[in-house]
Amino acid sequence: MSVIDTPRTVLNGVNVDALLGARVALESAPPAAAFTWKATAEWQDGVHTRTSINGFHGLGEDHRRERTFAIDTDHPPCFAATDLGATPVEVVLAGLAGCLGAGIATVAENRGVKLHSVKAVLEADMDLFGILGIDADVRNGFSAVRVNFEIVADASDEDIRAIVAQSQKRSAVFDILVNPTNVVVEVN
């Protein structure tokens, strides 16, 4: 993006010009596009863990934020737990909602569509026979995830559906959920 371009009117609060500029810049500098996301976590008590998030690596350097975000995960009373936070699997749903929402706003911005409201209801099914070790054929994780969007925007129903489809196509958390990832867990 050069400075003489007329900045487009921002409809949804997403700086698409900056994102498109970053895309052009990163394409010619692939190492800068290699990001590493980080979190640190500490077990509190029972099944309560506090995860802290601040630094990350990207654009060729380490970054620190001004504040550290904390996410408490725990389990509800029916799991005989203290309920000091959402369950880890619910935080996964929050990640999916946040990622798809960001995608929808960005794609809509890029396509010149003003969003008035974007609401989502997320559901994930899980059979406890997996984590409880009752049935080896039942997986631990979700057997299905459903996301239901209600979107009010200055666009046709078809255009809204296309925005939601495109946001899935470009979503990191959607990809993390639908595709396998190598995960290595080690102990120092």
């Binding site: 489809a165 899935q168 196509k169 959607f174 990809d175 959920l177 639908v178 595709n179 396998p180």
Partner: peptide, 8 residues
Amino acid sequence: QFSGALAN
């Protein structure tokens, strides 16, 4: 292994 993104 197949992707779960078939619907999309």
